[in-house]
Design a protein around this nucleic acid. Structure first.
Lengths: 160, 160
DNA sequence: GTTGAAAACACTGGAGA
DNA sequence: TCTCCAGTGTTTTCAAC
């Protein structure tokens, strides 16, 4: 019996190099990309298409300088909900997805916790976000914030 | 006195829409992009170039499905160093940048802490990473791991 | 995997609103 | 600063090999 429903894609060494190059610069032309990975354009384009269709490449995005964008401060916030009911989780996640301040959100194991990264212009705005928005979401029981100084490494995904 | 050394870029509403569209699909052609933001191609290309040159657009990257890539498990690790000496920080950061398992790393305020996200194929590999690599980095005093169940929101940067 | 030709696209510069 | 347009070179796509 064949289990998989999606088209499986065997990622070989060239695919890895394609992904690494696209991680570095996703707007590179297929021509440039092909010469960097030692292929001609047609098979390179085909590989990229296959990587997209297999779902391994989920998309392409722009890398924005958050400080220049007006949001130099990040804050990590641990959120604890008062009940781990599916409905509560859903409504919390819905709210979080709507808040533009929230850049990342993970549901953690253990103690009905979420881990959020918040991007703000300053701590005043963060205060307003906490009191005016986050604590008003139904089910939020407690919060714990920690502030990073600096981002040391930033890779969208592990490749090797 | 004019303070800024770099070229300042006033981000207007159209620029924001350009950034939002590129965040959705960074490989979109300028033609597509221009019609989506209600501009013709030439000024749209100029705006993108300006956003790149002002540093607001730092680059473009591919969004990879980490589970399909073979790394379905993420772990957040808090690392405490035994001395907050600049030299120790530097060597720790150098090591972290070299480990492919580490996708993100933040230097936190407070207690000489780093926050890392690790991507692994399973918990066995995570164990090996901890014992074989991370704890062997000079200056690492203590570790605390927490495991997420699921990613709820994933935005490379705040835009609004 | 390669080559090559047609179609789509990007870039430039100039005229006019 | 935008639109529109034309000219040029590049890039993508797709067939045939």
């Amino acid at each position: 019996m064949v289990a998989s429903t999606a088209v499986r894609h065997d990622v070989d060494a060239i695919d890895r190099r394609i992904l690494a190059e696209l991680q570095r610069d996703a707007r590179m032309s297929i021509q440039d990309l092909s010469s960097r990975v030692g292929l001609s354009a047609s098979p390179c384009a085909r590989r990229v298409r296959n990587l997209e269709q297999s779902g391994l490449i989920r998309g392409y995005t722009v890398v924005i300088d958050e400080p220049l964008m007006g949001f130099p401060i990040s804050v990590f916030v641990s959120v604890k909900l008062d009940h781990q009911i599916d409905d509560r989780l859903r409504s919390f996640e819905l709210a979080v997805r709507k808040f533009p301040e929230v850049t990342d959100c993970w549901l953690m194991t253990g103690d009905r916790d979420y881990l959020l990264r918040i991007a703000v212009s300053d701590l005043i705005e963060f205060e307003h976000f906490l009191t005016g928005k986050l604590t008003k979401v139904e089910g939020v029981a407690s919060l714990e914030s920690s502030i990073p100084i600096r981002r040391v490494k930033e890779n969208s995904a592990r490749l090797e």
